[in-house]
Design a protein around this nucleic acid. Structure first.
Length: 287
DNA sequence: TTACTGACCTGCACGC
DNA sequence: TGCGTGCAGGTCAGTA
């Protein structure tokens, strides 16, 4: 699943393939891919044509293509979105997951947006080259040069919820998804259900530092791939799944203490944790 | 205002 | 072999 490291790998790939190229046309093969664009598929194609891409930027899991006149094209990969540009195996025009195709004035390789589960999508943002208004509510992520660890720690401690829920809240700290939340909590030895309002500043700091470390490590090896749902712009997988300590490791021994990793249902998804290293919070007594 | 829940969506694995 | 069910999970609208 694309989380921050995976999206950053895609951003870097797209930067080298797109910057300086002028869009000739966008073909939308599935309207759902542009459902967040107010004017619909035809309008999306009309407003994106003729623009030159000046930069590919990112905040958390959102990408946007800054355009020459100050506008932007926003993109989110969702769970299964992929951008492919001129890979060794070209995407066929009738590929079942091809949602949007961009062709360029230079006649070079097209850019394809594929998305199996259609949770991702694209939209046009007028005047959004620096930061689209549509994603201004997304907090800075730990790989952002202007990310403030003390501010993020304070934001988490202000919440009255469980730590994992806070980590997944993109308006508090962005870029962290289910995989890296579990890995960060495992590294920090913190249970996913710990209440944020009673966590000390050093503990929250430790969790965020762990999240930063694990995402940096994942970025170095091209991100985490379990299957064909995440690949870079050339269609290649990352290798970080080989380094996961908790996520997806149910019943396997904890690399730290040997206790079998447990899987709990949490927030309609799975949480993987070591029941020995990450002790559950004591239930609060009703008065 | 804040926290929480469920829907969206498709392909795969598994059991019967 | 075919069918039904559960699971994967990021985001957002609706509800409490």
């Amino acid at each position: 699943m694309p989380e921050l490291p995976e999206v950053e790998v895609v951003r870097r790939g797209l930067t080298s393939h797109l910057v300086g190229r002028r869009i000739r046309e966008a073909q939308v093969f599935n309207d759902r891919a542009v459902r967040r664009h107010q004017g619909g598929a035809a309008d999306f194609a009309a407003v994106t044509a003729g623009h030159t891409v000046t930069a590919v930027r990112r905040r958390g899991k959102y990408l946007w293509f800054a355009l020459d006149d100050g506008d932007a094209i926003i993109a989110h990969l969702g769970m299964s979105g992929q951008f492919r540009v001129g890979g060794s195996v070209p995407v066929e025009p009738h590929h079942p997951h091809l949602r949007v195709r961009f062709a360029f004035e230079d006649g070079g390789a097209d850019m394809d947006f594929l998305d199996q589960r259609t949770f991702g999508g694209m939209s046009f943002s007028a005047g959004g080259a620096d930061l689209p208004a549509e994603i201004a509510h997304i907090a800075r992520d730990p790989l952002d040069s202007e990310f403030s660890l003390p501010q993020a720690v304070a934001a988490i401690r202000r919440k009255r919820t469980e730590i994992k829920r806070a980590l997944l809240d993109q308006s508090v700290v962005s870029g962290i998804g289910n995989i890296y939340a579990d890995e960060a909590l495992w590294r920090a030895k913190v249970h996913y259900a710990r209440a944020t309002q009673v966590m000390t500043r050093p503990i929250v700091t430790k969790v965020l530092e762990a999240a930063t470390e694990v995402m940096k490590a994942a970025l170095e090896v091209g991100g985490t791939s379990f299957d064909a749902l995440y690949v870079n712009v050339n269609g290649e997988s990352g290798y970080f799944d080989r380094s996961l300590n908790a996520y997806g490791q149910q019943d396997r021994p904890c690399p730290r203490c040997g206790t079998p990793i447990r899987r709990d249902a949490f927030m309609n998804r799975s949480s993987y944790f070591c029941p020995h290293c990450q002790r559950p919070p004591r239930p609060t007594r009703a008065r």
